[in-house]
């Protein structure tokens, strides 16, 4: 079809990538999913009977909602501020903000232990005004604390998705709305928010999927003590003599949640790009 390269050349170009993705992605993932169904669904009934699974699912749903919402709020505010900066300064700030994206979850975990752990900087600082370190220091090891640690690398994702929508937004519309008598906040809500909503939804879905699927930071922070689905699955996988079909079934649930959230984000996000 394309005059840029003949079809055989393009096909040859894509072969190595397709083979790699098939062998090292499609096959492993499918074998997990097939494993979940291998014993006629009894793996699912064992999983459903397991209270650890339900606790994990609950924790994951809380984490997968709270962490993205918090990140969305912070990320949106940061993006609004960045959009007002001069382009050079904005680029520099963006480079700094996107650094955590490539940081290992372990760096974040240990950084937060130093910051908010039982003898962390902030914990001890708060102890000087009389807050019990045993209580404040336990926060980071709770699902909500985990959410805060996750936001360290979720916020940059929000900023990167939302910032283009905000900078593309014609600010004169806000001026126009205010000249028609709308207050500053009202103009923001009535005029700007509806136009950048698809980006916000897309950002929420992406960060939610990341928060649901990740386990590195959580493992480094609390071992397998916090009840979230990935850690339940991790302990199933890493223990010997474990119930592999049940682990596959738990994987299937995890993939289903992530894929559904990503699909919603993609459906809304494609409207964003097509406009």
């Amino acid at each position: 079809m394309s005059v840029r390269a003949s079809t055989p050349i393009l096909a040859a170009f894509s072969v190595p990538g397709v083979i790699v993705l098939a062998l090292f992605f499609i096959v492993p993932v499918c074998s997990v999913l097939v494993g979940a169904l291998s014993d006629g669904g009894s793996a699912f009934s064992r999983l459903i009977a397991d209270p650890v699974f339900w606790n994990g699912l609950k924790g994951t749903i809380v984490l997968g909602t709270v962490a993205p919402l918090f990140s969305l709020f912070i990320g949106f505010s940061v993006a609004l501020t960045l959009a007002r900066l001069a382009p050079g300064l904005r680029t520099a700030a963006l480079i700094a903000i996107s650094l955590p994206l490539t940081f290992s979850g372990l760096i974040v975990a240990y950084g937060f232990i130093l910051l908010l752990g039982r003898s962390g900087f902030v914990t001890l600082l708060l102890a000087t005004i009389g807050l019990d370190p045993a209580v404040t220091g336990a926060f980071i090891f709770s699902p909500l604390g985990l959410g805060l640690a996750y936001s360290y690398y979720l916020v940059p994702r929000v900023v990167l998705i939302v910032l283009p929508a905000i900078t593309n937004f014609d600010r004169n519309q806000l001026v126009a709305a205010r000249s028609l008598g709308a207050g500053g906040l009202r103009a923001l809500i009535d005029v700007m928010l509806p136009q950048i909503m698809p980006s916000l939804v897309a950002a929420f879905c992406l960060t939610s999927a990341v928060a649901v699927g990740a386990y590195g930071t959580a493992l480094a922070l609390v071992g397998t003590q916090v009840n979230i689905l990935p850690l339940v699955l991790y302990s199933k996988i890493s223990e010997t003599g474990t119930d592999l079909p049940a682990a596959s079934a738990a994987s299937l649930v995890l993939v289903a949640i992530c894929a559904a959230v990503v699909a919603i984000g993609e459906a809304v996000g494609s409207r964003r790009t097509r406009r």
């Binding site: 492993p28 997990v32 699927g213 993939v255």
Partner: peptide, 23 residues
Amino acid sequence: RLVTLMPVAVPELVLAFGFILVF
């Protein structure tokens, strides 16, 4: 487009599990 979405839709943990099963 689906391929590029896969790493988010399929957590690394599940992929690692698949590696253990297959390899």
